[in-house]
Amino acid sequence: MPKPAPFTPKPAIEKLPLAVRKDVRDNFENEKEDLEKQVNDLLGNEYKFKFNPNEIWAYNESSGSTNCGSIMKNYATGFIYCLKYYVEKYGDEGKDHFNGAVSQSEISVGVNTLGDKAPTISCEVRDGVFWILFHPTSLGYNCDYIGDAMLAAIEAAPCEGLSLRAKHSVDEDYESKIDELQEELGKLIGMPDVTLDPNWDENFKALKEGVKDEGWQTSFGRAVFDYFEGFKSQLGYQGFKDDEMLQEGLADVFSSKKIVLRVLPKIKKSYNEAVIEDGTVYLQTTPSNWWVNVSQTGEGFIDLL
Rank of each mutant, 00 (worst) to 15 (best):
P4C: 04
P9K: 08
K10L: 15
K10W: 00
P11Y: 02
P17F: 04
R21D: 14
E29K: 13
K32W: 10
K32I: 04
E36V: 06
K37E: 07
N45Y: 07
E46V: 05
K50I: 15
N52Y: 00
E55Q: 09
S62E: 06
I71Y: 07
K73C: 07
I80N: 10
I80Q: 01
E93G: 01
N99A: 12
A101K: 09
S103D: 09
Q104I: 09
S105P: 03
G115E: 14
K117C: 03
E124M: 07
E124D: 11
G128R: 02
F130A: 13
L133W: 04
F134A: 06
H135Y: 03
S138F: 10
C143S: 15
D144Y: 02
A157C: 12
A157W: 03
C159R: 14
E160N: 12
G161T: 04
L162G: 08
L164V: 04
A166S: 13
S169K: 15
V170F: 02
E172R: 15
D173C: 04
E180R: 14
Q182N: 06
Q182G: 02
E184L: 15
G186A: 01
G190C: 00
D193Q: 12
T195F: 09
P198Y: 00
E202G: 01
V211N: 03
W216K: 01
Q217T: 07
T218V: 10
S219Q: 10
G221W: 05
A223E: 05
F225W: 11
D226C: 07
F228Q: 06
S233D: 10
L235N: 01
Q247A: 15
E248N: 12
D252N: 08
D252F: 11
V253Y: 08
V253A: 07
S255V: 03
I259L: 13
V260H: 10
V263K: 10
I267A: 04
K269E: 15
E273M: 06
V275P: 02
Q284E: 15
N289A: 14
N293Y: 08
N293L: 13
N293P: 02
N293V: 08
Q296N: 14
